[in-house]
Amino acid sequence: MTQGIIVTGTDTGIGKTVFAAALAGALGARYWKPIQCGIEDDGGDRERVQALSGLAPDRLLAERYRLALPASPHRAAEAEGIEISLADLAAPDVEGPLVVEGAGGLMVPVNRQTLMIDAFASWRWPVVLVARTALGTINHSLLSIEALNGRNIPILGIAFVGDEVPDTQRTIAEMGNVRALGRLPRIQPLDRASLASAFATHFDIEDFR
């Protein structure tokens, strides 16, 4: 039976793919990003996750939609003359843990009627919310937590990415009433070994089992 964990972010480009790679590698899980936009720029996150996680190729599931334009899913799909269907985003049935990465943030449109969070609500799996520690993150994080709670989506906890800002991290966890799972620091150089070491140092893998 699939044991899914959804990795989403408070914004785009904040490090959720790097976190998802670290988590999937630590769990020995499968990884799935159902919608990939922007392959004309860098090829996609599946390839990056494989390089950073060390997972075997057969543990990285193919996307349901793989779109060229680096834009919101609804717009990237429209540019290719298609419409993303929520029915096509049905969760796969795999054995063992599955780390699922959303496209962008929670309120990103999948099509003109559906948001990314609607897909999460249909899966009913716990969510890890990835948030940066920089200025502005309290507002974005608390709004994201409120949106998840409003749809009764379980929140496993919040994972921070960036430099340590203790008061900000504490404020989000306490006011959002969520567990702070840990913080992934800036990693230079970023490779499989350094990412695995940082994850093991700053997170407890048992929190995700």
Rank of each mutant, 00 (worst) to 15 (best):
G81S: 03
E63F: 11
S53I: 05
F208N: 03
Q169S: 12
V7P: 01
Q169A: 12
S197P: 13
T171D: 11
I39R: 01
Y31E: 04
D41N: 15
Y65A: 10
W125A: 12
R30V: 06
A79F: 15
R66C: 06
P73R: 11
G43C: 02
R192H: 08
T201N: 05
T137Q: 05
I187Y: 00
D41R: 15
I14T: 13
A119E: 07
L156N: 12
Q50H: 04
A71Q: 13
A180W: 02
A103K: 01
L61E: 14
Q3V: 10
S141T: 07
A103W: 00
V130G: 09
L106Y: 11
G162V: 05
A20R: 00
P73N: 12
D42H: 14
D58A: 05
E146A: 15
A29K: 01
K33P: 00
V165W: 02
A77F: 08
A87G: 10
P109W: 09
N149H: 06
A68I: 15
I117W: 08
M175D: 10
F120W: 14
L55G: 08
G43R: 01
A119T: 07
T10N: 09
L181D: 06
I6Q: 08
I6S: 10
V49G: 04
A71N: 10
P92R: 08
T17S: 15
G104K: 05
E101R: 00
V100N: 03
G43Y: 01
V99E: 06
A79T: 15
G176V: 05
Q36V: 13
G162D: 14
A103P: 03
E78D: 13
S72V: 13
N152W: 03
L181Q: 04
A134R: 04
F203K: 10
Q169I: 08
M1A: 02
D204Y: 08
E174A: 13
A77L: 08
L190D: 14
H202K: 05
L142F: 03
Y31V: 02
V130L: 00
L27I: 11
C37T: 04
A198T: 06
A76I: 04
F19W: 03
L60K: 14
P70F: 15
A198R: 00
S144Y: 02
Q3C: 06
L135F: 07
A24H: 04
E47S: 15
S194D: 07
R183I: 03
H202I: 03
K33G: 00
R170W: 11
P34F: 07
A119C: 15
T8W: 00
I35S: 01
M175L: 13
D41Y: 15
T2P: 11
A62T: 14
G102R: 03
I39P: 01
G54C: 04
Y65H: 13
R112W: 09
R151C: 09
G28Q: 13
T171M: 10
A180G: 14
T17R: 09
P154S: 05
G81N: 04
L115H: 07
Q169D: 12
F19H: 12
L23D: 08
L55H: 04
W32E: 07
S85W: 12
E95L: 09
